[in-house]
Computed example of a mutant assay.
Amino acid sequence: MDFGLTTLASLDLSGTKLESSLSRGLWNLTSLQRLDFSSDQLNGSLSDELFYLNNLISLNLGWNQFGGFLEGIWNWSSLTSLDLSANNFTTFLPSQLSTLTALISLDLGSNYFRGSIPSSIANISNLQYLRLSYNIFLSSSLPSEVFTLKDLITLAASSNHLNGPIPSTVGNCNKLEILLLHDNALSGSIPSSLGSCTKLKELSLYENPLSGSIPSNLGKLSSLEHLDVSHNKLTGTLPESLW
Rank of each mutant, 00 (worst) to 15 (best):
W63D: 09
S196L: 13
S38Q: 07
S241F: 04
C197P: 10
R34G: 09
N75I: 02
N126E: 10
I136F: 13
E19P: 02
D228N: 15
Y52D: 11
S211E: 15
I117W: 01
G188M: 07
S47N: 12
L186A: 07
E49Q: 15
L152C: 09
S116A: 03
F66Q: 01
A86M: 11
Q65Y: 08
P167S: 06
Q41V: 08
S81W: 05
L5D: 12
W27Q: 07
H182E: 15
L106I: 11
L127Q: 04
G188P: 02
D2P: 00
G115C: 02
D40F: 06
I166L: 04
N232T: 07
L162F: 01
V229D: 12
L29H: 07
T7W: 07
T237K: 14
L155H: 04
G109I: 04
L200N: 01
I117S: 00
L35N: 00
G219P: 03
N88D: 13
D107I: 06
T99H: 05
P167C: 02
S196Y: 10
Q41P: 00
T90Q: 08
N172S: 11
S144E: 09
L176K: 00
L82A: 05
S192H: 12
S95T: 09
S192F: 13
G219A: 11
S31A: 15
P239T: 10
P167Y: 08
S10R: 11
T16F: 07
F69P: 03
E202H: 13
L162M: 09
L26G: 05
V146S: 05
K233T: 08
A9C: 08
S45D: 09
